[in-house]
Amino acid sequence: MSFVKKCLVPRLIQYFLVTFLGLTTAFFLPRFLPLDPVEQRIAQYQAFGVYIPPEQLEEIMNTLRQLYGLQGTLWEQYGIFWRRLFMGDFGPSLARYPTPVIQLIVQSIPWTIGLLLLTTLFAWVVAILMGGVAGYFRNRWTEILDGIVMVMRPIPYYIMALLCLIVFAYIFPIFPLSGGVGIGREVSFGFDTIVSIVKHGALPALTLLVVGIAWQFQSMKLIVQGVRSESYVWYARAGGVRERKIIFHYVIRNAMLPMITQLGLQLGTIFSGALVTEMVFAYPGVGWILYDAVMKGDYNLIMGIMCISVVAVTTSILFLDLVYPIFDPRVRYR
C-alpha cells in the first residue's frame, strides 16, 4: 500500500504533468517557426511557373488555411489539437496533403525502431561486456582495445558514416548505397525482402554500433575501474570471497546501475529517429520525415513526431523509475 502511495502515485502525477507540458510545447513550437505552410505551398506553385493573379491569392490562401485546419485563434486550434489527440489523430500532413500524419509516421516508424532498437540494445550489451572486462583486467589486450576505441571515438559521426558509405558501398560495392529496401520491392515477409532489408540496414547499423559501443565502452570501463578499487571489493577479497563472485556481484553489478539509466534514456529517444544516419544513408525513418517536415513547414507532421517522441521519453523514464528499485536496493520502498 505504501508503495502505491509513496512511489507510484507521485510518479504518475509527475508523468502526466510532464507529458502534458511536453505535448503543449509540441503544439506551440512549430507555430513559432518563421515558416508559414500556406505561403510555402503557394511558393511551391509559383516555383512550378503557375501564375496566380493577386486578387485570387487571398482567396487561395483562405481556402488552404481552412483545408489545413489553421483557421481560428491559436487557442481554438489548441482545443482541436487535444480533441484529435485522444483519437490518435494529428490531422493531415500539410506538405503531403491530404495524407494523414499518423499514416506517415506509421509508415516510417518500423524502419527507425527496427534499426535503432536493435543497434541500441546490441551496442549496450557488447559495450558492457567489453568495458567490464577492459576495466577489470588491465593487460596488453585490453590496452590495445582501449587504444582503438580512443582513436575511433573522436571521429565525427557523419564523417565516419560517409567513409563507411564510400568504402563499403562505392569502392567495394558490398552494400547498397541508400534506401531501406530495394527500389520497387513490395515490403512483405518473403525471404528475399528480409535479405534486402538486412542488406540495406547493415551499413547504418554498423556505423551506429561503432559509435554506440565506443562511447558506452569508455564509460563502462571508467565506472568499472572506479568500482574495482572500492573498499568493499578489497574487503571482500580479504575475506576470501571468490574472484568470480567479486567480478559479477561486486564490480559488474554495481557498475551496471548508471548504464541502466543510460539505456533507459536512450530507448526513449529512439522514436525521434536518428537524423544524421537517415540523411546519410537515405534511410526511410522518422528522422528523415521530420527533416522534411521542418524544411516544408509541415506543422502537423512536426507536431505528430514531437508528440510521439515526448510520450516515448516520459514513458521510458517512468518505466525506468519503477524498475530501478529492482537493481538498486537503496531506493527500494518498504
Partner: peptide, 19 residues
C-alpha cells in the same frame, strides 16, 4: 585468508551497497 583477516577504515564502504 582463513588465518589472517582484515578490517578496514570506512565501515560504510566495507560492504557492497547493493548486497
Amino acid at each position: 585468508i582463513q588465518k589472517v583477516q582484515a578490517v578496514f577504515q570506512n565501515p560504510f564502504e566495507s560492504f557492497n551497497p547493493l548486497c
